[in-house]
Computed example of a mutant assay.
Amino acid sequence: MVIAFNQLRRIEKNVILLPEFSLTVQKGDIITVQSENEYIGHFFELLNHPDYIPQNAITIQTGGFRNVHLFQQTDGLYKRLTVTQMLRFWCNLYKKEPDLENLLNLCELQSCAYKKVKHLTFSEQQRLLFAAALIHQTDVFIFEDPSLGLDLQSKHVLHNILIHLSNQGAAVLVFTPTLEEAIRLGNLVYRYSDRGIQQLEQDAEKVEEIVETEHEEEPTSMQVQLDKISAKIEDKIILFNPLEIDYIESCDGQTYLFVNHEEFASSSTIKYLEERLQPLGFFRCHRSYLVNLQRVREIIIWSKNSYSLSLDNSAKSTIPLSKGNYSKLKELIRL
């Protein structure tokens, strides 16, 4: 154990700002937690004021909070400094010998090493902030939605940096509001909601299929196969042409249809929809996702165990592709 959260919670004026949070992060772990932005904000607010944290609610193996690096969206940069000057500043701050060439390579900042921070793109500035984590060299790194607003190349950089920190023996904890990012970045994935924290079992697909099959009714000979997929909004039922649907997500026992960047709840299980839509070109790319292959623009390979699908829709959505289904997809599209 490097850091452990022991029934951490926050209640003010009888309002639960943070539900109970219990989690242990070991050396070399990359744990991602998908949660609402509100909970993530309250969590980091509490970490920034450790004096308000109840005794024994957080256990850190060595060094206390001095041994924890927090990466937050509010972190700033000195805009008049160059990238190299910023790196040297952090090296002096953390009393580390500068290895500028290695830092620039890891963060892919070689081309802008002598450019002033104010002239960097947003993604380049974020990659520069990632360098601060590499320089700090603590045992615990906690990230607040680090992939927010990043371009594709910077997401690759972030993924490689997390792996690098893990290989150095650090304990890495990442909070993100997006399930796709949580799956892509983490070795262990959790959901944190008003019901507390629950681990997503990455190998539980067969169990899920068995449970769903038990609850689905066997079709009778009198049933008619419809080519519309239904969703409900308040007291209305909407019928979608299947080819209108970009992808389908299963989350906390509820199924959602994503159509033109809008989200609609469906009463059908993802397993049932898979069986109906597979002949129409839909593919079960992940335990929680069913994608319309006509919307897939590219397959993104983050590492040998991490993949995503980029969609050609107005939102430019990316959704996870599991390792096992990557092989099935290659066979299906004859790669």
Score class of each variant (00 low, 15 high):
Asp203Asn: 05
Ala204Gln: 03
Val207Pro: 02
Ile210Ser: 08
Glu214His: 12
Glu214Asn: 04
Glu214Asp: 04
Glu216Asn: 07
Glu217Tyr: 09
Glu218Ala: 13
Glu218Leu: 06
Ser221Tyr: 14
Met222Asp: 15
Gln223Trp: 04
Gln225Leu: 04
Gln225Glu: 11
Gln225Cys: 07
Lys228Trp: 09
Lys228Pro: 03
Lys228Cys: 10
Ile229Gln: 12
Ala231Lys: 09
Ile233Val: 14
Ile233Cys: 15
Asp235Glu: 07
Lys236Pro: 11
Ile237Leu: 08
Ile238Thr: 13
Asn241His: 01
Pro242Asp: 10
Glu244Gln: 11
Ile245Pro: 04
Ile248Ala: 06
Ile248Thr: 01
Glu249Lys: 06
Cys251Met: 14
Gly253His: 10
Gln254Phe: 03
Thr255Ser: 10
Glu262Arg: 10
Glu262Leu: 04
Glu263Arg: 03
Glu263Gly: 10
Phe264Met: 10
Ala265Phe: 15
Ser266Ala: 03
Ser266Met: 00
Ser267Trp: 14
Ser268Val: 08
Ile270Lys: 00
Tyr272His: 14
Tyr272Asn: 02
Glu274Ala: 01
Glu274Trp: 02
Glu274Gln: 04
Glu275Tyr: 11
Arg276Phe: 00
Leu277Asn: 09
Gln278Ala: 11
Pro279Lys: 05
Pro279Gln: 04
Pro279Ser: 01
Leu280Ser: 07
Leu280Trp: 01
Gly281Leu: 00
Arg284Asn: 02
Cys285Ser: 04
Cys285Ile: 08
Arg287His: 15
Arg287Lys: 11
Ser288Gly: 02
Leu290Glu: 09
Leu290Tyr: 07
Val291Phe: 07
Val291Ala: 15
Leu293Trp: 02
Ile299Gly: 00
